[in-house]
Amino acid sequence: MRSHPGEVAVQRRAGVRQGGHGSSRTRPEIPEVAAGFLRAQRMVVAGAADDLGRIWAAALTGPGGFADPRGERTIVLHALPAAGDPLHGLFTRERDLGLLAIEPHTRRRMRVNGRAVRAGETLVVRTEQVYANCPKYLQTREPTSAPGTPSLPARGTILEGRHQAWISAADTFFVATRAEGFGADVSHRGGNPGFVRLTGPRSLDFPDYQGNNMFMTLGNLELDPGAGLLFADWERGETLQLTGRARVEWGERRVVRFEMDEYVHLAGTIPSAWTAPGYHRFNPPV
């Protein structure tokens, strides 16, 4: 796979000198251990651009086995974005899709990027990048209930007070990005509550903690500032999706600043009961 110029630029700025360290090192095949991990999951996070080019991240849920690897480079998802979700109805034609399969109670996660198209009531993904992620900054929690029935969405361009409180207390969120010619990607961000800081009714920022130096999220943002954020309310089974633009501020600490264009608030999208979180020991103090 060819080198990603955005990742290379960010790695240089960050002082990373490892050659070929990034998405160019990934492979499209699904290893057997990865296939087994996918089949065990009950939630994946998907990221894609809508027809206006806005990036969204969404939760897809189902019983164990709903994410079904078939062969070396195909995954059939027996779930579609819910009605009211910004990704609903988009995959009547093939388009870039990023997936993050995450198992919070074991701190295991893997990313799958490729192209996807709807086939009946399934989403068929042709993989282009498959790779595991380290467990840093991932809080442990496990669902103790099933997802509900997704509700009609609430939409807006200004975050309400409940949304601001939700974001300010978050210990986890997901970020989707995309760069033309390099596909879509979904990543996890975690930290102690308060690591995401609201700077206005349409803006927030968060620190970019040290990870594996692949810089796939920041690399995409180097080429395209579009980003989608997904916050989960683990106690109510609700999700808050934000779409907008993000930029990286380079200083003593890297900070990502996000400006929202629109939000979508859905209930019933994820389980409404989870075990209490166990915070990762490497979470920096807020």
Rank of each mutant, 00 (worst) to 15 (best):
R12I: 00
V130C: 10
R54N: 07
P63L: 08
A184S: 14
P143I: 00
G71V: 13
G237Q: 01
R108Y: 04
F66P: 02
L97K: 02
R281M: 14
A40M: 08
R202I: 00
A184K: 06
G237Y: 00
G15C: 02
R27A: 10
P135I: 10
F215L: 04
A82T: 07
G62A: 11
L123F: 10
P285E: 15
A116N: 02
V175A: 15
A154R: 15
L198F: 12
Q129H: 15
R70S: 15
G114V: 02
Q41K: 08
G268D: 15
R189T: 06
Y279H: 15
P31D: 07
Q41H: 06
P193K: 10
S168D: 12
W56E: 05
A232I: 10
M110G: 08
W56F: 09
R178S: 01
A59D: 07
T127K: 09
E121L: 11
T61R: 05
A132C: 03
A79T: 10
S24F: 03
L52T: 13
L204P: 09
A276Y: 10
P150W: 14
P150L: 14
E121M: 11
L123M: 10
V10M: 05
I270F: 02
V44R: 01
T239G: 06
T26K: 02
G64F: 00
R25E: 12
Y279G: 11
H4A: 01
G200D: 07
E262V: 09
G47R: 06
V130P: 03
G161R: 12
L97I: 05
G219A: 06
P63E: 14
G251A: 10
Y131I: 03
R13Y: 00
T243S: 14
E238A: 15
E94K: 09
F282G: 09
D233H: 08
E142Q: 11
E259Q: 08
G98V: 02
P277F: 14
I158Q: 05
N220W: 04
G181A: 02
D85C: 13
G20Y: 05
G36C: 04
G84C: 09
S23M: 06
S145A: 14
W274N: 00
G278F: 12
R13F: 00
A154D: 13
M110F: 05
E7V: 01
G120L: 05
D261G: 03
D224E: 12
S168N: 11
T106D: 11
F66H: 11
R236Q: 12
G161S: 11
R247I: 04
A82H: 13
P143N: 05
G211E: 11
W250M: 00
T74Y: 09
A59T: 05
V255K: 13
G89D: 03
T122C: 13
L60G: 09
N192H: 13
A35Y: 06
F258W: 10
E180G: 00
R141N: 01
M110N: 06
R111K: 13
Q241H: 12
R247G: 06
H265T: 05
A276K: 14
G98P: 07
R2T: 08
G15K: 04
D50Q: 04
D51E: 14
A132D: 08
A176I: 03
T122G: 07
H4Y: 01
Q41V: 03
A169C: 05
